[in-house]
């Protein structure tokens, strides 16, 4: 414990944090959805337990535990979680989604090269030299290492001029 936390009493959050409420709401919703759809799947057949029985039980557990969690939070709200670096989350997730969307079209080497360059040069502020060398190794290098070394095929471009030159 640091001296700071000894001197200033931790502020008791009086209300349940919105993110916690959202979480509890989401788990309850998933639980209810599972409960309803597993009844449709059939809980019991003439042969014994049906495909819906096990999911039904899990949906029930999820709903019950979410309710218990809510009760616990109302009694004693949990301390606020540390904030996340939103800029980081957005840039990593968006760049990954873009990469996955174009990988089959542009091929692994070109799309991965651009992806790595973005993370190294634009976000990571490395020198051009470092960025280009690592990006080349991670795209072209990884492509050949996986294709010929490990026999694992990574995608080539769907466009004719690009795939003719091996990209």
């Amino acid at each position: 414990m640091t001296t700071e936390s000894l001197l200033t009493k931790p502020e008791r959050a009086q209300r349940v944090a919105p993110s916690v409420l959202a979480g509890i709401g989401a788990f309850t919703a998933v639980g209810v959805y599972v409960l309803v759809s597993s009844v449709d799947l059939g809980l019991w057949t003439s042969l014994g337990p049906g495909p819906g029985l096990f999911p039904f039980a899990m949906g029930g557990v999820l709903v019950a535990m979410s309710a218990l969690w809510l009760v616990q939070e109302l009694r004693r709200p949990s301390e606020k979680a540390e904030g996340i670096d939103r800029g980081m989350v957005v840039s990593v997730v968006v760049s990954l989604v873009l990469l996955a969307s174009v990988m089959d079209l542009l091929g692994f080497q070109l799309s991965m090269f651009l992806f790595l360059l973005y993370h190294l040069k634009l976000r990571g502020r490395r020198t051009w030299m470092t960025s280009v060398v690592i990006a080349l190794a991670g795209s072209v290098g990884a492509f050949y290492a996986f294709n010929y070394g490990l026999n694992v095929a990574l995608p080539v471009s769907a466009f004719t001029p690009l795939n003719l030159i091996g990209l």
């Binding site: 790595l116 993370h119 190294l120 976000r123 990571g124 490395r126 690592i134 991670g138 990884a142």
Partner: peptide, 11 residues
């Protein structure tokens, strides 16, 4: 440096 590690792990 962290950015390089992150990029390689993402790869």
């Amino acid at each position: 440096p962290t950015p390089i590690l992150t990029a390689v792990i993402l790869l």
